[in-house]
Write a protein that binds this DNA or RNA. Structure first.
Length: 586
RNA sequence: GGCCCCGUAGCUCAGCUGGAUAGAGCAAGUGCCUUCUAAGCACUAGGUCGCAGGUUCGAGCCCUGCCGGGGUCGCCA
């Protein structure tokens, strides 16, 4: 029940009625007509820009058009007052019975309040994390992971049919290095003195257990083999071990996937999907053999001008055409990624979202070009870039030295501050802005810590309800039972403000989903918490505003309906973010 | 040098896809609370939205050009 969407329909009906009467020209484009809450409360409950947006096309003055639309809207149910203001805004004031009805609806819907049909069950593929299986996840991965997961939850809540996907980069040179590194640990586990880990291999001691496991599985047999023989064995074994560790780490963050897609599976002996993809593009003229100019900027030492296999990404807005094969004849990462996205298209996804680190920004245009090419222009790829996280503890940067093989792992952070704090803070910032994450501050129990502030609001709501049930043992516990409380008795300014805030939840969901911006949910929840805490505090000075009025069960019940609504919206929103809504703070 | 992202109060950031007088928190200042509904509350002050043009009824938001910060620039993923 998105009241803004409902009234946007009313506005469009009003315009249609005027067209019917011949009062305004037919065929107006109403796509830009919106109904929103006015910035200033004194302007009423709802405002629409309809007259200003349509004035030019209708060849009328905005205010004249506004007057006519306003005349029609005056007859709409629940509209108490219509004003034309400013350059041509139409401001609507609703009657006192309206907002309580939204609360009743919300209480009936419970956690489903805010759920939207916006997506119309359209299939969306959200690909995120896709960390290389060459080691445990570190903090750098975690923002993208949380963002992708929250975005997937948000889109699902907004009515899309979402598939969450992880692309395992298990085919490149990196995983060969991984295998050699693991083999060294294997020899070590057999008692050999291996000394310092050579440059170019992964030094982290997370491979030590893998070495031991290889001994357990194969004994000393691998040692007698040539590299060509043991490498595939060790590689597969180690990747499996790394992916198991990564899944554990993701699980600690509350993240799971519908599909783990292996890059290796694209180039298996049975079917070279990369090759067939490239040849198909060659047939359609998007792939050719040619030469590239040397890259501008920092000179590349071993640049050689050679004829190579290129994808014509410039046809789709990219800056240069992009190579598909390395000088040794193997495919570039890009070539595999094209085949992978083609596979997604073939699985029926015309809407794809990839979540990448901001350092991959230069890759966006070519991938979007490729998606256009492999889908005959039918599919779209949105790429959300995630900026860096800087880790602090009490304001001091937490240094990590990757060179020594010791970095702050995702697991370290989750163990230190908890899943909820990590998730909420990762979402309490626009994804395209860098984020400072302070391990000490997120554990503070104060207003400055948004995680605590929001969770505490939910706990406080539950606490009020517990207290109320003691004062009035006959009161029902389930929220839906409050839907027909005497909500007309909610007449305080703060109560009405909170009511309207709750009523805007469905709109927030739709806008956040349309913009692929889960952080809006986090900020909205913070606003709800803020309104709620403020109302609670007002009861300190003004006892007649307290939620529990021991001498007035009817009023108490009405206010508890509001508290139930707050708890439901907070719980619903936190669920979208993947954060627990706790019933009490410890 | 090309491309991408960012620039909003002293600090950290929102700003609802172009709407009305640009908002929070922290810090600062002034009061209040010293007890209950659990870890404070209310008020005040604080702004040339990097700069300059443009688009239109209207721009923090869109376009162009500068300035500043970050990222990236065959055969890494």
């Amino acid at each position: 029940m998105n009241v803004y969407a409902i009234f946007a329909d009313h506005v469009r009906e009003a315009i249609a009625a005027l067209v019917e009467e011949g009062a305004v020209p037919a065929g107006l484009d109403v796509s830009r007509v919106v109904v929103e809450p006015p910035r200033d409360q004194s302007h009423g409950d709802l405002a629409t820009n309809a007259a200003m947006v349509l004035a030019k096309e209708a060849r009328m003055k905005p205010r004249d058009l506004a007057e006519r639309i306003a005349g029609k809207l005056a007859a709409t149910p629940h509209v108490a007052k219509v004003d034309v203001a400013g350059p041509g805004f139409i401001n609507l004031s609703l009657d006192a019975a309206f907002w309580p009805k939204v609360l009743s609806f919300a209480l009936m819907a419970g956690l489903d309040f805010g759920r939207s049909g916006l997506g119309a069950e359209e299939a969306v593929n959200v690909e995120y994390v896709s960390a290389n299986p060459t080691g445990p996840m570190h903090v750098g991965h975690c923002r993208g992971a949380v963002f992708g997961d929250a975005l997937a939850r948000l889109l699902a809540f907004a009515g899309f049919s979402v598939t969450k996907e992880y692309y395992i980069n298990d085919a490149g040179a990196q995983v060969d290095v991984l295998a050699r590194s693991a083999f060294l640990r294997y020899r070590e586990a057999l008692g050999e003195e291996i000394g310092a880990i050579p440059d170019g291999l992964y030094p982290g001691d997370y491979l030590v257990p893998v070495g031991r496991a290889l001994v357990a599985a194969h004994g000393p047999a691998l040692k007698a083999m040539e590299e060509g023989e043991w490498l595939p064995l060790v590689k597969g074994f180690t990747i499996d071990a790394m992916m198991a560790a990564i899944r554990d780490d993701l699980d600690a963050l509350g993240i799971d996937f519908d599909v783990f897609f292996s890059e290796r599976s694209l180039v298996s002996a049975a079917a070279d999907k990369v090759g067939t993809t490239i040849e198909a593009l060659r047939t359609s003229g998007e792939v050719y053999e040619g030469r590239l100019p040397p890259p501008k900027g920092a000179p590349i030492e071993d640049w050689e001008d050679r004829e190579q296999t290129l994808f014509r990404s410039t046809d789709f807005g990219d800056d240069v055409d992009r190579p598909l094969k390395k000088s040794d004849g193997s495919y570039t990462y890009f070539a595999g990624d094209i085949a992978y996205h083609k596979d997604k298209v073939e699985r029926g996804f015309l809407k794809m979202i990839d979540v990448w680190g901001a350092d991959h920004g230069g890759y966006v245009k070519r991938m979007q070009a490729a998606v256009k090419a492999v889908s005959a222009g039918k599919a779209t790829l949105h790429v959300e870039l995630i900026q860096l996280v800087r880790l602090f503890r009490n304001g001091e940067p937490v240094r990590m030295s990757k060179r020594a093989g010791s970095f702050v792992t995702l697991r370290d952070v989750v163990d230190e501050v908890g899943r909820d704090a990590v998730r909420f803070m990762m979402l309490f910032r626009k994804n395209d802005a860098p984020l400072d994450f302070d391990l000490a501050k997120v554990l503070e129990q104060s207003r400055e810590n948004p995680v605590f502030y929001v969770q505490y609001a939910h706990a406080r709501a539950k606490s009020i309800l517990r207290n109320a049930f003691e004062a009035f043992p006959k009161l029902p516990e389930e929220p839906a039972a409050y839907a027909d409380a005497r909500l007309d008795r909610l007449d305080d300014e703060g109560e009405l403000g909170l009511l309207k805030r709750l009523a805007s939840w469905p709109r927030v969901v739709e806008q956040a989903a349309a913009a692929c911006e889960p952080h809006r949910i986090a900020f909205y929840l913070h606003d709800v918490a803020s309104d709620f805490h403020a109302q609670w505090n007002r009861g300190k000075d003004l006892p007649y505003l307290r939620f529990i009025m021991e001498n007035d069960e009817e009023l108490t019940m009405a206010r508890l309906a509001l508290v139930q609504g707050v708890a439901a919206v907070l719980a619903s929103g936190l669920k979208v973010l993947g954060v627990d809504a706790v019933d009490e703070m410890k």
